[in-house]
Structure formats: structure tokens, C-alpha cells
Amino acid sequence: MSVIYMLLGISIVVAIVFFVAFIVAVKKGQYDDDYTPSVRMLFEDELVKDQSKTTIKNKKTN
């Protein structure tokens, strides 16, 4: 039954893919700052709200 070779091959390839992804992530410095991104993530909404507010204001004045 050679299906086991295939299964083994697949499992190891998948494992290696994740492993390489991990190394690449470390190399890019993703683990260097583990605080700022958690705060930054929350900002986008604030910005959009801010912009919409100003556009409403602009419309009113126009």
C-alpha cells in the first residue's frame, strides 16, 4: 500500500510550509514589536468616523 508514502509526503510538506512561514515571519520582524499592532488595529475605525464627520460638516457649511 503505497498510499502511506503519499500521506507521509503530504503531511511533511504541509508541516514544512508552516515552518517556512514561521521563519519568514520572524525574519520580517513580525515578532519584534508585539504591542503596537494591537493598538494600531483599532485605529482604522476612528479615522473613518472622523472623516465622515468632517464631510457632514462640510456639506452643512456648503
Binding site: 514589536d33 494600531r40 485605529f43
Partner: peptide, 24 residues
């Protein structure tokens, strides 16, 4: 602080991006 420093490009268009490292 993070928010204002990452929006520096609104104060000076010559700045294309700014990224804060809070820990450092």
C-alpha cells in the same frame, strides 16, 4: 501617541509613512 505619530503625513505631505514601535 501612536495614532498621531502614524498620521504625520497629514501634517506634512512630504512624509509618506510613519510607524511607531511602542515598546521601543
Amino acid at each position: 501617541c501612536i495614532w498621531i505619530l502614524e498620521n504625520l503625513n497629514k501634517l506634512n505631505p512630504g512624509i509618506s509613512s510613519s510607524q511607531v514601535n511602542f515598546g521601543k
